[in-house]
Design a protein around this nucleic acid. Sequence first.
DNA 1: GCCGTTTTCGGCCCGACTGTTTTCAGTCG
Length: 637
Amino acid sequence: MVYQPPPEASAARAPGTELTGETRVENAEVARLFRELADLLEIEEANPFRVRAYRTAARTVENHPEAIADLALHHPGQLTDLPGIGDDLAGKIVEIVRTGGLPALESARRRLPSGLTSLLRLPGLGPRRVHALFRELGVQNAAALRSACRAGRVRELPGFGARLEEQILRELVEHRDEERRFPRPVAAQYADALLEYMRAGKDVKEAEWAGSLRRRKDTVGDLDLLITARRAEPVTQRFLAYPEAEQVLAHGATRAAIRLRSGLHVDLRVLEAGSYGAGLYYFTGSKAHNIAVRRLAQAHGLKLNEYGVWRGDTRIAGRTEREVARALGLPLIPPELREDRGEIDAALGGTLPPLVELGDIRGDLQSHTTASDGRDSLETMARAARDLGYGYLAITDHSPHLKVTHGLDRKGLSRQRTEIEELNRTLHDFVLLAGSEVDILADGSLDLDDDTLWSLDLVVVSFHSSLTLPRREQTRRVLRALSHPAVDILAHPTGRLLGRRAGATFDFDEIARAAADRGIMLEVNAQPDRLDLDDIAVQAAIRHGARIVISTDAHDRHELGFMRWGVDQARRGWATGADVANTRPLPEFRKSLHGARSSRRPRRAATASPGTPHPGSARTTRAPARPPGRHATARRP
DNA sequence: GCCGTTTTCGGCCCGACTGTTTTCAGTCG
């Protein structure tokens, strides 16, 4: 079978064409190209270690907290300092960054249709079978595979069969070739219910979630449940009988898998108690972290598997994770950091960061009331925040531009301030801050006049429209907004909505540097479908010296409880309590806030219209918002 | 394709389950 590629697949970009600054290649794009090439090479049965090298490189690039394009263009020699990047891959990165394309991938696409890579996502189909489908039946994509299944031609291939054919067809009809991930807060609801059900089983001793849920990743593809029991069979049976299970995907002695009605796929593993720690470690992952830790075990002459740490045939650890880690000469690494992003070196060097905890949070810096699109009153929100043990809550109703939210203008904000001041007189040990979530307009100007902005305790800015501006323009827009000296916080910086909207494209490093320079804080928005910034960006922001805030953006009193999701996100970004501004008690938080603002504020209160460039730009008149070097990052990877 | 207490070649993490194999390859995590 000779494959004729469609014309558009090979005519990506004329050779030698250079990309202009307008379209800088994102880390994620470099990673995507490497992954596609790895998939195609694997289908071609290339050297599996070569395939792995591309996947490792994809992960390294994706996880790199700064723009790989900057490195490739200005310091290409430093690319090989990154783990898993050698001379060859460094050259390919430079190629991608310069031209937007990768000749090796284009050549692979001429040999194999790239539609094949989506077939790899179908359960039961790996590279060998996908290759056979293409070679024997000429199948190039999901549609062709569906026809082949319906015609009964798939079952006749060696290594396939009627059952596999039926399964493939079922999966195709249900679109399981498309990647589906759940925001973790959503997956956690299903997980909590299933865990409670399993713990009620009489044979169950310990039961815990592992996998990406335990690593607190922002989205979860499937759930991994670990259970210890003397006898595995009754536990497995109980699992398979879970009322919410739609389909049994696998069922062995110690392992089983089901799909819930929600579409979530759940893997169960049953172990004996002596292996609990090793099993938990193993199933928590990530895969890349596991591989790195196993290498470390090898270097010590040990073997690590899900049953324990072994010296020859003797198990020397396994009961608890801490015991497993100790046997490998490591302190216990928090699950959030287990991504092979430098945490093992940090652990070996004794420089793991003391991650921020939910209990460190002293206040919430974004919330809404019935004055705009919230569902609870000022007083209800205040009392709920105080009940959480906070010392302060910022009320940040929307500005008028966003019509659907019925935002507050100058008059509305003034009225609200009066109410807030009255309320503050009745609340003990608790303060409401009068703020606003001010829309960043398309040109980067702000949606409130300067006097109104300066009248607020806290100015949070964010955009809700024009998310698709070209990169350079979007960067300029955000920089202009941050150049307004009254701005305190940039909220949900990318505007992404998990599973629905990718978010705006801009030069995040430039924004983070500007924020650090001006003492503006970057928000980790804790709304389950935002979780914006993501973990990589949090890490990058901290490296640039910017402070983080974790805010719930609560639209009613219950949503104040979203704080935990934001804290999890910040922890994955290696944030310590010191990196997060709202771990400070109010006087301290306020002092730093007003310190930063008063030094930015022009001598004579600006009366210019919204967004007019400001005299006495902070860059020249303001002392740094914090001592330089506070973020000395020897502990960072 | 990367990498080095195995250092420029020869390794590269480890085990369970499924289906169709009749002894194991492929897939999955």
